[in-house]
Nucleic acid binder design. Structure first.
Lengths: 208, 208
DNA sequence: TGTACATCAGTGAACGCGCGTTCACTGATGTAC
DNA sequence: TGTACATCAGTGAACGCGCGTTCACTGATGTAC
């Protein structure tokens, strides 16, 4: 908490990072300017040297939370043994992701909140949803790929949208359900079924 | 707003109903005792004749919102031409459900909120999630039923969990996405794919 | 390299406001006679 | 059926509190000479 220009940039970054964590943990409305500044060892007055208002902070914090969530997911996949879609699925629908809201996917953590927020917040999350779906679409193209299989590449974006919906929905349900065994079963059940669907490509419209 | 005992019961019911609507529209934290009482044409002081505290009200309002959401869903299916699973799917993943948060499914409206709430709220929603999954499981058993098909009845509860997750997730994503065509496409895409999965039974473990 | 000074990151008292909750009250309800 | 009265649903002033925001300030930074 020095007085130099680089200290200021660092302060702003710490405020944003802490806010991004807090909103994933307790919701957009949970952030109070006074408590937030105290939690990064500053006083509330200084806040307005960094942001115009609490509302402007929240817009930036949402963006940051979404970026941090994606980075954490990629890092988690990197650490694991597997790659690609199956690794993504395992890490996303894991007990550890369920139990670490503060650092996990911000789409899941804040979906209900943003669904009722203003256009600005919804537009920010919309872009990240498209990124999430794109990642999955790329993963699906690689997952059950048999060279020369005419079905390869035939999956359109809609399959990825289904998979994304199920991943977000299952993570949310697992976080609500109080019985730990039932919560685990939701994660495992959806994980296994999505893995199978990706491998067999049985989501293809032509097949039905 | 009379003074009889039945008036009191009616008042409590109106307070709860209004609170159930407000939390689905704007989240658990959005309810203020003063505004809530004003919106049912009473004054704030009377609130404590009906509920011990704001927190106790919220627990009851969550229960009510979940029940109202389920009732609205059943009513919507009754009104339509189709029955069973496909009707449920069409009505749940519809533009009209997406656009009427205040009266729609409370699991979707409040999933992120309850995921971070206390055990009491999570237990209340857990019970309703099990009900939601059971409804779907019953629907799936009827959906692609071919008499004598050995696969009939082989689907376990896990298929219903996948379908429930995708339904909740898709509705949430469609409410966040700002581009109306993209939002529609999410609803339609997931609706069509879940319908096909139910008909072909291609979720069965044996098949993969 | 040393000094004088403008800049500006961060401080903390103060503001008006809406919040949840309490409580003395008013007056309609409904019961006992 | 009529009267006297206890009950209690609903009222509204008052409370202490934390909120977002403002602003005069302090003192370190970093630049001009």
């Amino acid at each position: 908490m020095g007085h130099s220009q680089s200290d200021k940039a660092r302060s702003r970054d710490r405020i944003l990072g802490e806010a991004a964590t807090q909103i994933r943990d307790a919701g957009l409305e949970s952030v109070s300017v006074g408590r937030l500044m105290r939690s990064v060892d500053l006083t509330h007055g200084g806040f307005y040297g960094h942001f115009e208002s609490r509302s402007e902070l929240l817009a930036h914090a949402l963006e940051r939370a979404l970026a941090d969530g994606r980075a954490a997911s990629l890092a988690s996949v990197e650490r694991g043994a597997r790659r690609g879609f199956h690794a993504r699925l395992r890490s996303f629908l894991s007990r550890s992701h369920r139990d670490s809201r503060r650092t996990g996917c911000a789409i899941a953590a804040l979906a209900s909140d943003v669904a009722r927020a203003d256009d600005r917040a919804r537009a920010v999350m919309s872009r990240h949803i498209e990124g999430f779906v794109d990642d999955i679409a790329r993963g699906l193209d690689g997952a059950g790929a048999v060279p020369g299989d005419p079905a390869h590449g035939a999956r359109d974006d809609g399959d990825a949208v289904l998979v994304a919906s199920a991943m977000i929905g299952a993570l949310l349900l697992s976080r609500v359900i109080t019985d730990p065994r039932r919560s685990d079963a939701v994660l495992r059940g959806v994980r296994e079924r999505l893995a199978r669907l990706a491998d067999t490509g049985s989501m293809r419209p032509e097949e039905g």
